[in-house]
Design a protein around this nucleic acid. Structure first.
Lengths: 383, 383
DNA sequence: ACCATGTGGTTAATCGATGTACCAGTGGGC
DNA sequence: GCCCACTGGTACATCGATTAACCACATGGT
């Protein structure tokens, strides 16, 4: 399968070159500007000039009309807008970006180890939330995938140096996160998901009472009679890992208990399976497993079942995220809903505001809430 | 609990404005160019001019040095590159895009009904594949979400009119797909995933023998003794839906059989559950269900189990896509691997080639293959 | 009659990089 | 000694939109 760049007779009829422009290059090599883009229909996109001419005004008037700046009579404004619609013109993003030093593009960089193939569905939800706010305001979402923090930092530096983006959404806040300072240094607005920290160089966006969900989960399990709980956490360097783990241990301590075990993972399915196997083989096996995301919880359920245990009769499982899939599994997954989508929307709004956009400030009430379904049940009587 | 967007003391000390810049606008509104971007460190990014000055050459020389065009001595070239590195300069994406009419940005538009919340993990895989080829060449991926085809078309028109992208990756080819013609009319290079059709206005990219996977699945089930199979397809308007459905029915016909049922869905979990329930309630219940994607298959397994059936003892289930999750469920999901990631990479290469980039043409050998795991088993003896 | 005040535009500079046209040297051939 | 080719660069127009500065003209107050 070769590259399929057909040559076309270029600009056959009445190519309207500016006066004095050379008719064509002698060597027959298409100049870069006409290049591969030229299709048979390759209607050269109209420019502001064409619109100005069509409306019988100057280009400045057109610009002012579409941007609502300057002083333009309503009549002229209409004429301009009509002409623009007629010609199907929209201002060139590149030209506008160059002049205004603003690209209307936001970056989302997803960082994860190379061997984790599928992106966490968590990000799909987040993106949905972001897009819902960005798109209506003409903003685009530039998505990048990187393997580690070094790459991520380098990427921001490049994006900033090239002036490709107006801001960035940071996910997976780390305990000692280099990105806030980096981005501030680069002069790029940003918001950090999940860990509102007033002292940080970039504002955080997230539900309040981050720990509420896990506390509720523990309370729920205690109420069901469970006394031996284990927590399967994410990577230790993530901020929310610490928050949730502490919430877990605190809640247990409040009942005079200690966790049977707390294990950290890298969020991969493989790790979830390995840890679950280990915990379930423990002499004093936990009767309930609390996972720090749904993907791992699903793996955990599968692993338990494969080990001959029934969920929830023999072991209860709680997830975190409330991904759509969890509703349809058997048993349906008990999990913590943290409204990723809504948080994403709020993050977008916050970021847009910092980019100078006039948006109503995000209202993000609520807190993570436990959704009780079928993967949790009474403690096994044998225990 | 209100939004938690803390304000920060903005730009407190010594905002370093360029000389000659007005100290501040009288009305206190920051001018657009300084806008929100100005941080205390807001080091104005260096321009090509600064690099030229630092290297003691003209801006043209700098441009030629970094682009490898024109005639520049190796010595000067080095000096320029060093100066650029020293200053941390990269050419402005906006300026370059304006001048060259090329943005180094590719669009991926994900279309799905508004009520499907989480994006199909399928797209995560695809994006991973795309990014792997785009990023190393300095290309960015602009991601958009839309609800329906009308919105999608409008979006391409806007993106084209604004000159925001160089090309697009089209997914979910439809039987009567308006996008190829639309994009050709707009002069935008594109590739269509999944249905290589030489006659189409845009080239298709996909594994060969699209039907091989489903055929293999059917053969596998027949070999296990199944005779009553049902197929749960995607939306009828998608090309691959038809291909796979036909493959399914053909393969059965080859064995002198007919499908117990073929049902179309909108790919939502809800639909998958509903259809599964309906099929399993059939008087002559199918002993094997073949789903057209993994997400639905997982829902199908859950539904069967909830209905008191064991998988695979009472009913076998086959998925399609080979998402990572399927390996860890209980039972592990038998599915068709179509190497979404590799196809994504190939699509990126093909598209880059059409954008005038000098990339080795994608090599896409192989075909969809059945991955036999645990969700398929011998036909129940009672049948 | 005259100046302040608006109104509704226009002109021209500018954003940063690119590429064509052009120019200054420097040997080389004969 | 003269012309030519070649090397290594520079000057300037250009991409398309934005915006500060300015201007022509009408109106109203004194």
């Amino acid at each position: 399968m070769k590259a399929r760049i057909e040559g076309h007779p270029e600009d056959v009829a009445g190519a309207s070159q500016g006066p004095g422009a050379p008719a064509a290059r002698p060597d027959g090599v298409p100049s870069a500007r006409q290049g591969a883009r030229a299709g048979s229909e390759g209607a050269a996109r109209p420019t502001i000039k064409a619109v100005a001419a069509a409306a019988g005004v100057s280009t400045a008037a057109v610009s002012q009309a579409v941007n609502g700046t300057g002083r333009i009579s309503e009549a002229t404004r209409r004429r301009v807008l009509d002409a623009a619609a007629e010609l199907g013109w929209s201002p060139s993003a590149s030209a506008s970006a160059l002049r205004r030093a603003r690209t209307r593009t936001i970056a989302l960089v997803v960082r994860r180890p190379t061997d984790v193939l599928g992106a966490d569905p968590h990000f799909s939800e987040l993106i949905t939330g972001l897009e819902g706010e960005l798109a209506p305001r003409g903003y685009g979402l530039l998505l990048h995938l990187v393997a580690d923090m070094a790459q991520e930092s380098a990427l921001y530096e490049r994006l900033a140096a090239e002036g490709r983006i107006d801001g960035a959404v940071l996910t997976d806040a780390r305990a000692d996160d280099p990105r806030p300072h980096l981005l501030r240094g680069l002069g790029l607005p940003a918001v950090l998901l999940g860990a509102p920290d007033p002292a940080a160089p970039v504002p955080g966006v997230g539900l309040g009472q981050q720990d509420a969900g896990v506390r509720e989960a523990v309370a729920h399990l205690l109420e069901l009679g469970h006394r031996r709980l284990a927590y399967i956490a994410g990577p230790a360097e993530l901020v929310h890992t610490g928050l949730r783990r502490t919430a877990f241990e605190d809640a247990l301590a409040g009942a005079g208990l200690r966790a049977v075990a707390v294990r950290h993972t890298d969020f991969t399915e493989r790790a979830a399976v390995a840890v679950t196997e280990e915990l379930l083989a423990l002499p004093d096996r936990p009767t309930a497993l609390v996972f720090s995301n749904d993907s791992m919880a699903v793996c955990g359920i599968g692993t338990a079942q494969r080990g001959g245990l029934r969920v929830p009769e023999d072991v209860s499982v709680v997830g975190y995220d409330n991904l759509p899939l969890g509703r349809w599994l058997h048993p349906r997954l008990t999990t913590v809903d943290q409204q990723v989508q809504r948080v994403g929307a709020a993050a977008a709004r916050a970021l847009l505001a910092r980019c100078g956009e006039d948006v109503p400030p995000p209202v993000l009430d609520g807190r993570p809430r436990l959704v009780v379904r079928e993967s949790t049940g009474c403690v096994p009587s044998a225990s």
